[in-house]
Amino acid sequence: MSAPPVARPAAESAKEAPSPAMRSGPAPRPGGDPLIRLFHVSKSYAAGQFSLRDVSVEIKKGELVFLTGPSGAGKTTLMKLLFAAERPSEGQILVLGRNVARVGERGIPQLRRRVGVVFQDFKLIASRTVEENVAVTLEVIGVPPREARAKVFAMLRRVGLQHRRHHRPAALSGGEQQRVALARALVNEPAILLADEPTGNLDAALTVEIMDLIAAAASRGTTVLVASHDAALVRRYARRVLKLDGGRLVEDLPGGAPA
């Protein structure tokens, strides 16, 4: 956060995009080119009503950023813009060097394969098992089945769900489903992780476990954005906090010491 934002061409930053989690050795410090940039972004679903209004922000590689604000502030909307589930009404958005506001039919899958998302409502496929749900991230890019199975199993173990891998989502508790969603988002080691209330259904102990997993991804170089209401959680991790209110970015607090 001390480094001034450098206005280098976006395409270049894409080339330097991380191969997170594959790295060993000391964790890279957040810094360098921003992986996510918003320029005066507004989003309006219905005429005259803005869910996001003139938001400009930059997030650098490896940063772990909390997104807070009251219900309806626009947290989910901001995340949706980042993986092109919605288009901005105004402004430009660069993610991994791509102009998301203008990315085409073919570009969207390419983008989404590098952005892991934990959805607020999980979005698990009801007809598939836990294991199969996590594997879809790998299937869409054609990872060999054997390799995919191994990765999925390792990932499920990290979220403590390896024993539930043959169950369907309906047979899981809310917290378990949330962890499946996180496993699916992280299994392909994404460059960016967007987690929308990833601990909303977890008890205190599990919250710490899951947040540690997310923080670990950040320390391996994944750029992480976590939407959360939980002030205690935000304080505990003492990272950069973006606060939205009524669609406006009202605070951008640099974090304290890294956890």
Binding site: E105, R106, P109, R112, V117, K123, L124, I125, T137, R184
Partner: peptide, 16 residues
């Protein structure tokens, strides 16, 4: 369609 939407959100192409 729910399944298709989810697949699309995790990066499935139209072909997929």
């Amino acid at each position: 369609r729910d399944e298709l939407e989810i697949l699309s959100l995790v990066g499935a192409s139209r072909t997929h």
